[in-house]
Design a protein around this nucleic acid. Structure first.
Lengths: 177, 177
DNA sequence: TTGTAATGTAATGCG
DNA sequence: CGCATTACATTACT
């Protein structure tokens, strides 16, 4: 883009007035600023000599540059905060899903216990609850139900058949029972 | 409202300062800015007359004031974001606690079910799940005992009846049990 | 072309 | 010096 090096950097940005630093001067100042944000007297005089501008202007440039730098940091902080919030919200949603599932499972467990208590003891073959999001429960139930990988949320009724002793070949609710 | 020319404001800051608006001037400009962020020609000339400064300076002051305004908004956004993050993290912690409790309760329930299955089927009399954070589970269970309305995640509760040997008779479909 | 929002830069003054 | 402010200048938009 800027292939041509116009030696008129000086008047490039100055119609009538203005002591604007040209590109080369800015480049050197930026390089200096990268190494140290602080400007000691020695450096100031050296830069003034090299760039051909009064030391006073070097100081001013550094001060303004520091202010700009501070704003940039602020901006970065803001973005970092935004990412953090994003992550926190995402994790929160995940946890909400998790608790919902756990409550459902707990509810089901309670239902079963109450069902058992209210009179129908003795006929239980095998049934098991499994969790899709809580490892210890999963491993627990895996131990119990050998190779059945049951995801509660997607728990289809036919996946439960083997757990309660129904032989295969029977499908769908009410069809062949 | 422009009561008079207080010569006191002038020397409050700097003795020979041509730039820098005095307090009264700033006060009026701020008041004007409060009402409208935009400066139409009429207002500009009016303010210039009232404050005794060239219209050009009024324009510039407004431009810079708008820039400052924007930064202030940024600052507010940043703070709001910080509060949001704070809340999200707090809620996340709460949910973590909750899931931990629920996992514990679920495990307890599973142990009870295993215990029942593995032999001591006739002995259940009293069991309680110590629920400290989800009373609705208990109430749901109770609800299940009296009416058979509860379902969860595709699994109809009456589909569970045969699993635990409940023979209440007719429920929804499957009236041939 | 004029105006101005937006952005950047130079400079000033005060604490 | 740090900080806020003043004063332009440039660019893009409309």
């Amino acid at each position: 883009m800027n292939s041509s090096f116009n030696s008129q950097n000086l008047q490039k940005y100055s119609k009538h007035n203005k002591k604007r630093l040209n590109q080369e001067q800015v480049r050197l100042l930026e390089a200096s600023f990268d190494s140290t944000k602080k400007l000691d007297l020695e450096k100031k005089l050296q830069l003034a000599r090299e760039l051909g501008v009064p030391p006073r202007q070097i100081s001013i440039w550094y001060q303004n540059r520091r202010a700009r730098w501070k704003n940039q940091c602020m901006e970065n902080d803001y973005n970092a905060l935004q990412v953090k919030l994003e992550n926190a919200l995402s994790e929160k949603r995940q946890l909400e899903k998790e608790t919902e599932i756990l409550q459902g499972e707990l509810e089901k467990a309670n239902e079963m216990l109450i069902g058992l208590k209210s009179g129908a003891q003795g006929q239980i073959r095998e049934f098991r609850l499994s969790s899709s999001c809580c490892e210890d429960v999963i491993s627990y139930s895996t131990k119990w139900v050998h190779n059945y990988e049951v995801n509660y949320c997607n728990l289809q009724i036919d996946e439960l058949y083997p757990m309660i002793g129904v032989e295969e070949g029977t499908k769908k609710c009410c069809s062949t029972w």
